[in-house]
Structure formats: C-alpha cells, structure tokens
Amino acid sequence: MTHALHSSGDPAVGGGEPAGAGTAGAGTAGAGTAKVPPAGGKLVLGPEEIRRALTRIAHEILERTDGAADVILLGIPTRGVPLACRLAARLTQVEGRPAATGSLDVTMYRDDLRLRPARTLGHTSVPPSGLDGKVVILVDDVLYSGRTVRAALDALGDLGRPRTVQLAVLVDRGHRELPIRADYVGKNLPTSQREVVHVLLNEVDGQDAVMLTTGLDQAAQPSAGDARIETDR
C-alpha cells in the first residue's frame, strides 16, 4: 500500500500556479501560528506535488459538480482556508467565473473541548448568498480521526441547509474514529498513530510541504483530533 512519492496518479494537468493564489486567504488564516519544519521530518509532499494534487482535486470537483456552478469552498481554519482559496483560484481559472469561498471555524463544536484548555477561535465567514441549496465542499489539510469533520457538519447545520456537503483534504492519513470519508484526496498517506503529519503552507508558514515525523508524545492521544491540532500548540 505504500505509495512512492510521485505515484499517486496525478494527471499532471498543465497550467502553472494561478496568479494571486499564493497570497489569497493569507489574511483570513485566523489564529494561524506559523510552523517551523520539524527537524528530522520525512518530506512526503513538496511544493510541486502539492500544486499538482490541488490541480487534480480542482478538476475532480469540476467533473463531479457539473462545472462547480453552485459550489462554495469552505476552508476549516487554520490551513484549510488557504487550501480552499487555492482550489477556488483553479476553479476560476478553468471555468472563467469566480468560485465562492469562505471559512468555517469548528472550535465551538468540537467534542474534545473539555480535554484541554479553551482554544483560540478561528474565523468564520460565509458568502453573503448563504449556504441554502448550495454544494458545500469542506476543505481541510489532514483527515485523521474524522472528529473535526463531524464538528464541521454540526457547525454547517447552524449556518444553513446546503444541498450537498462534500469533503476535500490534502492528506488522508487513515485511523478514522467516525464513519466519515473524503470525496477528494490529495494524497493517501498510510501512517501509524505514533506518527505526526505536518502540513506547511506558504500563506501561513512561508513554505509548502507535507512532512512526517515520529512523535512519541503525541502517540498517547490519538483521538484528540487531527495532527494539525496536536502540533499547532
């Protein structure tokens, strides 16, 4: 099952990084705390692979949603937000009309709030047209236990009633604790629960990379959310 670094089936669609995509969303990254690349971490995806994975996801979205007419890309802070903006830039580039984006903070809906001190809230913003009847695609960096996505589904329910909700993630690292799956996956990354996936994005961290480290401390609490939460603080 181990994927070699370049074998994840990227169609390698042409077209460079859309202009402006690098900075879009940087202002809405919320309580983004820039991460430094972990020492001794194994590089799983570099900037090129991330770019190609997002381009492929964008084309899959266009195929599966009939040209992304009613699509709203909702990023989950911190790093889902710039990913949603990058996907939107690609959709805009291909279809020629702007794709709606937003961000959806799920902190207040988490099921593990009482396990740790009060967290800093991220930013929630929804396009003025609302979510009712739209195709909402949740965007996050890592899919792990599925608890963040469950919280996001609850949060969505309080904001409106989308026609469909789909999920796009940059990395699916397995170890689901809830019946949740992603519709669009940048990279399936088989991991052990001892390992920690670090996603670094240019808008937040100054560089694009997905890295894997063996975190001995973090292994003790696999159900406390995805790796992003573990390593953010």
Binding site: M108, R114, P117, A118, R119
Partner: peptide, 19 residues
C-alpha cells in the same frame, strides 16, 4: 464565559493556555 468555562476545568490558567 467561553474562555473561563469552554475548556478543561483543571483550575489552571485557561487564558494562558489558549494563547
């Protein structure tokens, strides 16, 4: 209320840890 009650009730410094 969120910052005082929203997290673990360990009695420690909630605001401190939220940063």
């Amino acid at each position: 209320l969120y910052l005082l009650l929203g997290g673990a009730q360990a009695g420690g410094s909630q605001l401190e840890a939220a940063r």
